[in-house]
Design a protein around this nucleic acid. Sequence first.
DNA 1: ATAAAATGAGTGATTAATCACTTTTAAATC
DNA 2: GATTTAAAAGTGATTAATCACTCATTTTAT
Lengths: 173, 173
Amino acid sequence: MTEKQERILTVALELFAQQGYAATATSRIAREAGVSEGLIFRHFESKEGLLKAILEYGNKEVNTFNSRLSTYTDPRARLRAILEAPFYFEPQQYHFWRLIYSLKWQMETYDNSMSTTIKEALLEIFEQLAYPDPNAEAELLVAIIDGTMMAMLLRQPENARDMLAVLVQKYGV
Amino acid sequence: MTEKQERILTVALELFAQQGYAATATSRIAREAGVSEGLIFRHFESKEGLLKAILEYGNKEVNTFNSRLSTYTDPRARLRAILEAPFYFEPQQYHFWRLIYSLKWQMETYDNSMSTTIKEALLEIFEQLAYPDPNAEAELLVAIIDGTMMAMLLRQPENARDMLAVLVQKYGV
DNA sequence: ATAAAATGAGTGATTAATCACTTTTAAATC
DNA sequence: GATTTAAAAGTGATTAATCACTCATTTTAT
């Protein structure tokens, strides 16, 4: 991975996350990364190839989180870790999550694997905790996590810690 | 409002919601609406003017909901009405809500008024219900509503009614 | 010396927007 | 009620700009 390759990835991620994939021109990426436009296509073949490279790079971090989850054996501890995740994602991953969530509304191709993984984990947890309707609980909590991610990415509420406290209390973990 | 004007608005809303504003060409809108491309600019001046016209048109429905909310005097009844809203929005408004939520990730210009209106209503409700931290509760419930809207618009879960039941039970309304 | 990295002018296609022009609508005049 | 008239509705060819992408050439690193 060349230095210029990394600069292209970083700048492209930032612009895709800020203005959207379709609204971002490869010429703009090249200009802001301080490289020639041709270099983007030399390394990543196409604009979509550049997007895929960004997503693959970011997915490593997601998988790291997922595998860290499975270290918790106690279902309550696992639930708490899932609840905390949206409030403590690393600042350097801000652009990546913004891109992921903005892509959800177009391009159904990408993503999805993430949501289903977490949904299955939650289903197992709520079954272990003997909730009356584990399926509805899991689906609802996926929605709550998505909504919390939206809040953190779009509004960055100053009372985020209090929100987490309320959430943790509601689930008693 | 001419018939062709309405066709332009309808087709543009559908395409903007499906593929995103930036990714939708005015030539495509004209073709699918069965009108000349020039007519779009005659009536709406620019592509952004067309977007604004769509949003103004749709905002009327939102205001209708908001004023209907204020008819409830009992805070529990108001809370329940707010919780139910994402599960029962009219199917004909599907494209409108998809556009609203996809625009949140780009173009901060638009929207916002909606979220703050509902946040203030929730703040009042949780104060009346003497919740320990009304502000955090309100912010969290805004997030839950946004997440539920995401689920309804993107995944359309078949157990939506069960999700609502769980939610209603959690808030005891 | 050679292969990979990098350039930037150039490609055709597509974009939003404009233009001169024709058709339709509807009220005003006879 | 027919005729005139002017504004509004509608067209489609055309514009300049921008788009993703290519390629012959130069620079850099080993």
